[in-house]
Each structure stands twice: as structure tokens, then as C-alpha cells.
């Protein structure tokens, strides 16, 4: 296959568009009527409480889940209409950091990080080794783990290996599912800096799902907040905030500002009411 995905596209329009996307699992609806546009070269943070559908949103964008209704456009083309081959070609342009890292546990760390380089480039073994070492250093991991298996690492280390693996092919679009969860504050900031510096090195479009408001404010141009459907009125849009990251604390919607400040009072009252019944 080709080393760098060459493609013809109009480079001005939005890179990813979700139009009226709805995702159901059996009878459970998780996403409802999501309209979201992601412009080239920008970083979007997605926040929202646990279980509101952030991971589902990311998986829909990369085509792992198919919308029950609505469509996802990538570079102007409807994902559902692409052939399997074409879809694969487009996916190579993405890097995806899974929430639980999803490392291949039959492979060593080095093989994990070098996987897509081996699959999609004709780089020699020593070239791949060089890139793998560079990626490993970027996420702040020591060289001596290269020949270990994922099961021998801590959760936070696995997550960073996942990040190194996702960045290996220098993707045009990075989808991060909670990049800093489970990391100490210093390492979280190292990862934040890494997200920022990959952006400086080459034009990259990113979506960062996070619970970490520091991450959201530091790396993102724009923040959207998803609200869990079961607690939403039928006529409300599911995205309850969509705007610049530095003004989110002053959001008019009290649910947004409470979430950002981590105030649980109203939520606790709601839970007590539910239990009381």
C-alpha cells in the first residue's frame, strides 16, 4: 500500500460533518440528532458525563459504528457509501486512541507501535525501529519496555503506548478517547503538550474526548458538551454547549457551568429524588 495517502479533496470545506446522526443499541438510544462540523486543522474537545456517548461518537466518526439514522461525511463523502477498500484507505488517515488502549496483547510494545508502519509502508526494519523509539520518547516511556508485552505494563503506560501507536503514521486526523485519564498530573501535562506539539509539526485535525477540563482548555479551540439522553427533554438538542473553550465557564446553561466546575449538588439532589421514589 501507499506510504502517504494522497487524495483529492477540496481543502477548504469541513473535514468531518455529522448530519442528524442517531445511534441506537437495541432499544437504547445513545445519540440523537447530532449535527457537528469539524474544520480542518482545528482541535475539538468533547466533554460530558460518563456514559453520555462520547466514545460512541468517536467510533461513529471513524466508521466502527454505523449510524442508525443520519450520516457522517468525511472530506465531503458519505462514509456509508464508501467501499470497504476505500474506507480502509480513508482510515489510514486517522489515528485512534482507544479508551482502554486496545493494544494487541500477542505483540510486543515495539510491534504494537510499529504495526501500521509495517502494514502500510515499505520502511525497513531499522527505519521502523527508529520511528518507534522516537514515538516512545515522545510519550515519556523508557526504551526498556520495547520487548515487553502489554500485560506487563501499568494502565497509564499502556495508554501512552496506545497514543504512540496511534501517532506512528503521522495521521491527518487524531481521535483521542480520554488521553490523560489515569495519568498523574505531570504526565497529563506532558500528553497535553504532545497533543499541542503534534499540531505544530504538521496540520492535524483532532477530536479529544476528555473529562479533564485542563486538557480541554489547553488543547482545544472549541468544546462541545454532550448530555445523556435519558435526562434530556425530547425537544432539547443533545449538544448543550458548543463554543470556544475559554468561555465555557461562563456558559449560560447552568448544567454546563456546573459540569465544568465539578459541582455535584444538583445532581445529588436528582439522584436522591430517584432513590426516594
Amino acid at each position: 500500500m501507499v506510504a502517504t495517502a494522497t487524495h483529492i479533496s477540496d481543502s477548504s470545506g469541513p473535514l468531518i460533518q455529522m448530519e442528524g446522526v442517531e445511534i441506537d443499541f437495541g432499544r437504547q438510544r445513545v445519540l440523537r440528532d447530532i449535527d457537528l462540523t469539524i474544520s480542518r486543522g482545528k482541535t475539538l474537545a468533547v466533554i460530558g458525563e460518563s456514559g453520555c456517548g462520547k466514545t460512541v461518537l468517536l467510533k461513529t466518526i471513524i466508521g466502527l459504528l454505523r449510524p442508525t439514522r443520519g450520516l457522517v461525511r468525511f472530506d465531503g463523502r458519505n462514509l456509508a457509501e464508501l467501499s470497504e477498500r476505500e474506507l480502509t484507505r480513508q482510515r489510514i488517515r486517522f489515528g485512534f486512541l482507544f479508551q482502554q488502549a486496545a493494544l494487541f496483547d500477542s505483540m510486543t510494545i515495539a510491534q504494537n507501535i510499529g504495526f501500521s508502519l509495517r502494514q502500510h509502508t515499505d520502511k525497513r526494519v531499522d527505519e521502523i525501529r527508529y520511528i518507534v523509539l522516537a514515538r516512545l520518547a515522545e510519550v515519556g516511556l523508557p526504551e526498556n519496555i520495547l520487548d515487553k508485552k502489554p500485560a506487563e505494563l501499568s494502565g497509564g503506560m499502556r495508554k501512552r503506548v496506545g497514543l504512540a501507536r496511534a501517532l506512528a503514521l503521522e495521521p491527518e486526523i487524531m481521535l483521542y478517547d480520554e488521553p490523560t485519564t489515569g495519568l498523574d498530573p505531570i504526565m497529563s501535562d506532558v500528553i497535553n503538550e504532545l497533543i499541542l506539539s503534534t499540531r505544530r509539526q504538521h496540520p492535524i485535525t483532532s477530536i479529544v474526548v476528555t473529562h479533564d477540563m485542563r486538557t480541554a482548555q489547553k488543547v482545544a479551540d472549541r468544546v462541545v458538551m454532550l448530555y445523556p439522553l435519558p435526562r434530556l427533554r425530547a425537544d432539547e438538542p443533545q449538544i448543550i454547549y458548543d463554543g470556544p473553550s475559554d468561555r465555557i465557564e461562563q456558559a449560560a446553561d447552568s448544567r454546563v457551568s456546573q459540569f465544568v466546575r465539578g459541582e455535584a449538588r444538583e445532581r445529588l439532589m436528582e439522584m436522591r429524588q430517584l432513590n426516594g421514589r
Partner: peptide
């Protein structure tokens, strides 16, 4: 196990069938 721990999904996102 690969399915449950999303390793198969990871393969897909990395462009391997």
C-alpha cells in the same frame, strides 16, 4: 478476547482487515 478488548476494532482503525 480480542473482540471484547477492542483489539479487533483497533485493527480496523489501523487499516488492517
Amino acid at each position: 478476547t480480542m473482540r471484547v478488548t477492542e483489539q479487533i476494532d483497533a485493527l480496523v482503525t489501523m487499516g488492517a482487515n
